[in-house]
Amino acid sequence: MTKHLITGVAGFIGSTLAETLLRSGLSVVGVDSLTDYYPVENKQMNLAALQEFSRFEYLNEDILAMSTELHQAVNDCSVIYHQAGQPGVRGSWSDGFDDYVERNVLATQKLLECIEDKPGTKFVYASSSSVYGNADSWPCTETAVPKPFSPYGVTKLAAEHLVTLYAENFGLNSVSLRYFTVYGPKQRPDMAFTRFINAAIHGDTITVYGDGEQIRDFTYVSDIVEANIRAGQTGGNGAIYNLSGGSHATVNEVLEILERVHGEPLKVERVAQQAGDVRRTGGDSTNARERLGWEPQVAIADGIARQYAWQKANQRTMG
Rank of each mutant, 00 (worst) to 15 (best):
G11S: 11
F12M: 09
A18F: 08
E19C: 07
R23L: 13
R23H: 08
S24E: 09
L26V: 01
L26K: 13
D32G: 09
S33E: 14
T35Q: 11
T35F: 09
D36L: 03
Y38C: 05
V40T: 12
E41S: 06
N42H: 06
K43W: 01
Q44K: 15
L47P: 05
L47K: 02
A48E: 15
Q51I: 06
D62T: 11
D62A: 13
D62L: 12
L64N: 10
S67H: 01
Q72R: 10
A73N: 03
V74S: 08
C77L: 03
V79K: 07
I80C: 07
Y81T: 09
H82T: 07
Q83S: 02
G85P: 04
Q86S: 04
G88D: 07
V89W: 08
R90A: 15
S92G: 10
G96Q: 08
Y100D: 14
K110P: 05
K110S: 13
L111T: 08
L111M: 12
L112C: 09
E113S: 10
D117Q: 15
T121H: 12
V124Q: 11
A126I: 06
S127K: 13
S129F: 13
Y132M: 14
A135Y: 07
D136E: 14
S137G: 06
W138G: 00
P139L: 01
C140P: 05
V145Q: 11
Y152T: 04
T155C: 00
H161L: 14
L162C: 09
L162K: 05
L165D: 14
Y166D: 11
A167S: 15
V175L: 09
R178A: 09
R178C: 09
Y179M: 10
V182C: 08
Y183S: 05
P185G: 10
K186L: 04
M191E: 13
T194N: 15
A200S: 04
I201G: 11
G203P: 14
Y209S: 00
G210N: 00
G210C: 10
D211F: 04
E213Y: 11
E213K: 09
R216C: 12
Y220C: 06
D223L: 01
E226V: 06
N228K: 07
I229C: 10
I229R: 11
Q233K: 15
I240D: 06
N242Q: 08
G245L: 01
G245M: 01
G246M: 01
S247L: 06
V251H: 03
N252I: 07
I257T: 12
L258A: 07
E259G: 03
E264Y: 11
V271Q: 13
Q273F: 09
Q274R: 15
A275D: 03
D277K: 04
V278Q: 00
V278M: 09
R280S: 01
T281H: 01
G282R: 03
G283N: 12
N287W: 12
R291C: 06
R291A: 08
G293T: 09
W294T: 04
W294L: 08
Q297C: 10
I300Q: 05
A301Y: 04
A301K: 06
Q307H: 02
Y308G: 08
A313L: 02
A313V: 09
N314R: 06
N314Q: 07
Q315R: 12
M318L: 15
